[in-house]
């Protein structure tokens, strides 16, 4: 932890506005030279976070609007994240980096790259990197009645429970990205952790068809560890938590086509697994 100091990007500016949050046991500070933006740094950046004092911080982000040209520049400590004309891009960049920092450094939980839904009071994980179609599939599943946990991170605790990390869904299309807040669409969002019932290894393929095959617990563990953010820095924790998770869940694998076509089939499969 360190005492906050003015950061590289805004060190020459007077009266920066400060705010801070605590998430997953980590304290994040935010400094900006735009007073009206200090309030932007809120729980929206990190699901489950709460405001805190700007002191004893683990990480400090900064957002500067340059006096000449009006460009926005975002920083983590002294590292530049992005610089450009779009305020939204700068804020998105901070949010994304902050979420990955939480995933990498969380002391309480293990974070995996996985979409997560709730179905019949159990969690279902879809491990996969970006562009594997997690968000699109999760969106289609929650539109079909599942409960939203996360489109990007599965947060696992020592008991093997999966916690919600319900950030806005990041959906991609031919024209770019859009953030979708499930609550705006009247969709259900998880508020408490639950045990996992299934691990589903699936990836979009243009000619993919949903034909699930069983995956052994060991194979499932390898899939999950291949998507575990802190596996190299804390392999003991990663292997133990993942081992606990696969021991209590059924794992299946299949390619898939369009998410809206796959969603009802997948939920039928889950019903069969749970019955």
């Amino acid at each position: 932890m360190h005492t906050p100091t003015l950061l590289t990007g805004i060190q020459n500016l007077c009266s920066p506005q400060n705010s801070a949050i605590v998430a997953e046991g980590l304290r994040f500070g935010f400094q900006t030279n735009r007073g009206d933006l200090a309030a932007e740094f809120s729980s929206a950046f990190a699901p489950g976070s709460v405001p805190t004092e700007f002191a004893d911080l683990d990480f400090v982000y900064a957002l500067e609007q340059e006096s000449r040209g009006g460009l926005y520049a975002a920083y983590l400590e002294s590292r530049a994240l992005v610089r450009g004309a779009s305020l939204k891009d700068a804020l998105d960049s901070i949010a994304s980096d902050l979420q990955h920092t939480i995933a990498s450094h969380s002391r309480k939980r293990l974070f995996l790259h996985a979409g997560v839904i709730g179905w019949r009071d159990r969690a279902v994980l879809f491990p996969g990197r970006t562009w594997s179609g997690k968000s699109t599939l999760v969106h289609a599943l929650i539109q079909a009645g599942a409960v939203y946990f996360s489109d990007e991170f599965a947060a696992i605790d020592a008991r093997g429970y999966v916690h919600p990390f319900a950030r806005p869904l990041c959906l991609r299309s031919g024209v770019g990205r859009s953030a979708v807040r499930p609550e705006d669409e009247g969709l259900k969002i998880a508020s408490s952790p639950c045990r996992a019932c299934a691990i589903v290894a699936t990836e979009y393929k243009m000619d993919g068809v949903w034909r699930p095959e069983p995956l052994s617990p060991g194979q499932a563990a390898l899939k999950l560890l291949s998507n575990t953010i802190a596996v190299r820095s804390d392999p003991v924790k990663a292997v133990r938590y993942v081992g606990r998770l696969v021991s209590s869940a059924t794992a299946i694998a299949s390619s898939r086509g369009d998410a809206r076509v796959t969603a009802p089939l997948l939920l039928e499969t889950l019903d069969r697994l749970l019955s």
């Binding site: 970006t130 990041c170 953010i229 190299r232 820095s233």
Partner: peptide, 14 residues
């Protein structure tokens, strides 16, 4: 499988 490096694991949205 090779364990993902922090860079590999960081599947940035942007």
């Amino acid at each position: 499988a090779v364990a993902p490096t922090p860079a590999m694991a960081k599947s940035k949205d942007d």
